[in-house]
């Protein structure tokens, strides 16, 4: 049975009382490229603790992806601050931000975005290679992950010969391989069928528990929302609810 708890403002997830790894304060993002000014994020204050399995939901255009881009250092807020482990990343230069992303954040995209010329294993170890990790360490980690996500034996297959579900598993392995502080998954199940979605969610949930990695999803998918332990709803760039779900 699920027990729902509405968090007080500022909205905080305090499911486990674990250390806060992401904290945003007074976050605003306004796009002025078009004639009409668009306030994609309109004053968000949130924090995320280590080991969360959180879904950010809301209608299209509510600012889910923009919010994910802000905390993932892919976009810069118009105002407000993003703290990762207490460090304000909104002041980072683009080069420093790239390095920061490389060593701290894992990404899972809707369209998998694997490198088509690399095999499944090469894709999964790509970030570790960019980090300069030794081969033995990479091999060990990828073997563990492929076993855990159920694609052992597919190491030398190119993405084009894998199913959508398998490709997304490889993308999850890539995101997890370097043991990032948190993983941002933007609509990770949008292109998957029910079976593949259920399997992928099982895998991610299991890894969340085993490796204590924080997962933050932006999603429309009911199946993801049902598995989330915290559900943040955005509307017009604002948080309208932040629910801790105790399973």
């Amino acid at each position: 049975m699920k027990k729902e708890t509405k968090a007080s403002s500022p909205l905080r997830g305090d499911k486990r009382g674990a250390p806060v790894i992401i904290e945003v304060r007074g976050l605003h993002k306004t796009y002025t490229e078009t004639e009409v000014e668009v306030k994609a994020i309109n004053g968000i204050d949130l924090s995320f603790e280590e080991g969360e399995f959180t879904a950010i939901v809301g209608p299209s255009g509510c600012g889910k992806t923009t919010f994910l881009n802000m905390i993932g250092g892919l976009d810069v807020p118009t105002s407000g601050k993003v703290f990762i482990n207490g460090t304000d990343i909104s002041t980072f230069s683009s080069s420093k931000m790239i390095d920061f992303r490389l060593n701290n954040i894992g990404f899972v995209f809707q369209a998998y975005n694997l490198i088509p010329v690399l095999t499944a294993k090469e894709n999964a170890e790509f970030i570790m290679q960019l980090q300069g990790r030794p081969k033995a360490e990479r091999d060990k980690r990828i073997a563990e992950l492929f076993e855990a996500i159920g694609i052992a034996g597919k190491e030398n297959i190119k993405p084009s010969r894998l199913s959508g579900g398998q490709q997304q598993r490889v993308a999850v392995a890539r995101a997890l391989a370097s043991k990032p502080k948190f993983i941002l998954a933007d609509e990770p199940t949008a292109n998957l069928d029910s079976k593949a979605t259920a399997e992928l969610l099982d895998i991610m949930h299991e890894l969340n528990r085993q490796e204590k990695v924080t997962f933050i999803f932006s999603t429309h998918d009911k199946r993801v929302i049902e598995r989330a332990e915290r559900i943040i709803t955005l509307e017009d760039g604002k948080v309208v609810s932040d629910i801790i779900v105790n399973i």
């Binding site: 892919l74 790239i98 390095d99 992303r101 490389l102 990404f107 975005n113 960019l130 980090q131």
Partner: peptide, 16 residues
């Protein structure tokens, strides 16, 4: 474009 965006997003720096 998408592939390059992805590698830059996940941490491939300008030099690489």
């Amino acid at each position: 474009t998408r592939e390059l965006g992805m590698v830059m997003a996940i941490g491939m720096n300008k030099k690489k």
